[in-house]
Design a protein around this nucleic acid. Sequence first.
DNA 1: ATTGTATACTTGTATATACAATAAATAATT
DNA 2: AATTATTTATTGTATATACAAGTATACAAT
Lengths: 235, 235
Amino acid sequence: MVNAIKFPQFEVIKQYVRGHINSGRWPVGTRTPSENELSASFSVSRMTARRALQELAQEGLLTRAPGLGSFVAQPVPAKPSIELHNIVAIAQSKGAYSCQVLSLEQISADAELAALLGFEIDQPVYRARFLHFDGRKAIQWQEIYVNPKVAPAFLKQKFTRVVPDEYLEWIAPSGHVEYRVSAVLARSSQRRALGLMKDSQNACLQITRICTRGSMVASLSKLVHPASLYQLGTT
Amino acid sequence: MVNAIKFPQFEVIKQYVRGHINSGRWPVGTRTPSENELSASFSVSRMTARRALQELAQEGLLTRAPGLGSFVAQPVPAKPSIELHNIVAIAQSKGAYSCQVLSLEQISADAELAALLGFEIDQPVYRARFLHFDGRKAIQWQEIYVNPKVAPAFLKQKFTRVVPDEYLEWIAPSGHVEYRVSAVLARSSQRRALGLMKDSQNACLQITRICTRGSMVASLSKLVHPASLYQLGTT
DNA sequence: ATTGTATACTTGTATATACAATAAATAATT
DNA sequence: AATTATTTATTGTATATACAAGTATACAAT
């Protein structure tokens, strides 16, 4: 004889309600039995029936209102989304990672850059360009603009072992981070760096990451990946 | 005199615990006061203290174990992700949407396509190509492969008012849907259709959507957007 | 040294009860 | 007829209590 699993009573009630919702017997907007009605029909205390309804509300299946009752909630359409994995972190974990510093300098924000960063025109900005390798293969070209106020010593770093992103995270733990994904054509310098053939395979997936601390942009990073090496998806 | 908002007691306890966690006073793994300790120090019943801990556990800040206690949980690193909005649906909602059928035919699966769809080689597949317009501007080029078993009448549709995706959703409500994002170079036919200049702005963001029903691929759709018109981001 | 036992403490489930806040329906008053 | 109380039903908060189940510790017996 197999021992049947003993379900708690609130779980039984949850299944009962869930069943009526999923099967369509209680369409959206339907009022469910009240706590008292459920406690009577299932012969449990009100607190137990309450727990069932409350957890279902937490899960988004019900909405509850004092004085009115509990109602079958409008299901929220699942917005399709994809994860942004970090190709550099993957290479690092494999142990074959290396990084080449292409440039590391202070520039003055032109109109376009100032607008992008929320800076004044001619305000100093640190700009660095890196090429990230997985073994001998260049997998990512990076251009990063850094706010000098956030990381004053950025230009003095060597970035031989520490990835620039890790350094910034260390100096100034991230506040809000925003990502954008777009398709770009590799410019000639990027093409050379990434070892792409002209006119054939120079489509690149670019991820733009903007880190802000408070109302201040801390850094803006453009990560350019050859389309042949990088693809985003739901895993 | 302004009336101070009256916080429920369980909320006060939650804030107390949250404060200790967020400030780092209770690092990951720390045991929090037990339900009984909290109920004593806050002069509330055990059930009230319990509710505070339980809701915090629900929110992922604590893990609880019978016989052991409640512990500060390891924060799960928020995986950055971006939403895939539908440029066609946006155009539709503006009312300026239209769709041009470029081709609509039955083909035989070659080796590559068969592998992609999980079909046998030479198995019949419906292939259609569409061009979607927002007003006069071509915003999306679409190529879709459809499983004849799922939508036998696909080739007979007109797709003047009903978008192909809506038709398929109507015929066969979606099971599992998977998305991939990649960068591609527009081919010459796509360039012409989308009105792109040669060699300059032909980087495109391609979204591949694979709809499966059970273990069967129902449709595979490639949505190609000019990089200048389409960008993904967190909103 | 290992095993078993008792004990204390923890969270999980469940009950019975009380009162507050909200909203709708009903009755009473103007 | 319109307005105002009253009642009733609902969810929200809170308490006190009880027992079950899992864990660790101390202690005794083997």
